[in-house]
């Protein structure tokens, strides 16, 4: 019953987020601030992880290709497919659930604990719109990070493959071009947009409706990470079935 009540509260929260907009001039500055915090601030970690994961995927594939009949360009092919289909959209989103999700839950939760949200509501400000809507808009730029993650991940694979002596650059590039289906990139970006909405709203829900003190803020952050990850993984399955199945 608690889960059903939470789903209901979440739906009502979403409705409220898109109602009674805050003054546009203020909203604009809030959106820019959130873009800086959530998007620009996440680039470093995403680039770092993508580069090394791309490298590891290439090395793992190379080490498992013991049969001389299998062409070396399969390393490039596998790296591309892994990065574009799953690593960049899904794995990065789980990382973002930890980084951005915890930040959102703890910042909104702290505002709840210190009565700052009550202060907004007393003034007549739609607190949900003021706090959550800019985050949703900012995270609609999340696909740009993922595009960078795809590029850097594949570049990492190329570096590891070529400089590790596993294959030539020409083989890797040939693998990258092998049986390329452009819809896979579209599929990936559709997933990313859905995950972006999840990344903005589930942590906000856990922060906004939390009760208690500092300890509960910590617990809410952990719960928010778990639920954001669970929802992303379930949606990943559903969207894959719908779009590729």
């Amino acid at each position: 019953m608690n889960y059903l009540a939470s789903i209901g509260s979440y739906a009502l929260m979403i409705k409220e987020v898109f109602r009674k907009p805050t003054k546009w001039s203020i909203m604009k500055s809030l959106i820019l601030k959130e873009i800086d915090e959530l998007i620009y601030g996440s680039m470093g970690i995403i680039i770092f992880i993508s580069f090394f994961i791309g490298g590891v995927v290439a090395i793992q594939t190379a080490l498992n290709l013991t049969n001389p009949i299998i062409p070396k360009n399969l390393i490039g092919f596998t790296t591309r497919q892994s990065i574009i289909l799953e690593f960049a959209p899904t794995f990065c989103s789980i990382i973002m659930a930890g980084k951005v999700g915890s930040y959102i839950t703890s910042s909104i939760g702290t505002m709840r604990v210190t009565e700052q949200i009550d202060a907004l509501e007393v003034m007549g400000v739609n607190a949900l719109n003021y706090l959550v809507f800019p985050k949703i808009v900012a995270l609609m730029l999340y696909p740009f990070i993922i595009a960078i993650a795809m590029f850097v991940g594949i570049f990492g694979g190329w570096m590891a493959g070529v400089f590790g002596g596993f294959l030539t650059s020409a083989d890797f590039v040939e693998g990258l071009q092998l049986e390329f289906i452009p819809f896979h990139v579209t599929y990936s970006f559709i997933k990313v947009l859905v995950f972006a909405f999840v990344l903005a709203t589930i942590p906000s829900f856990h922060g906004f409706y939390m009760r208690g003190g500092a300890l509960e803020v910590g617990k809410a952050s952990t719960t928010s990470f778990v639920w954001t990850s669970v929802v992303i993984i379930i949606l990943n399955y559903i969207l894959t079935q719908l779009l590729l199945g």
Binding site: T110, T114, E115, Q116, D118, M123, G124
Partner: peptide, 18 residues
């Protein structure tokens, strides 16, 4: 909402925006 704008509130912990 208009009426709320005629109200001022001083919270126990001040509730200033950090």
């Amino acid at each position: 909402r208009e009426l709320r704008q005629e109200m001022g509130m001083v919270f126990q912990g001040s509730a200033l925006f950090d």
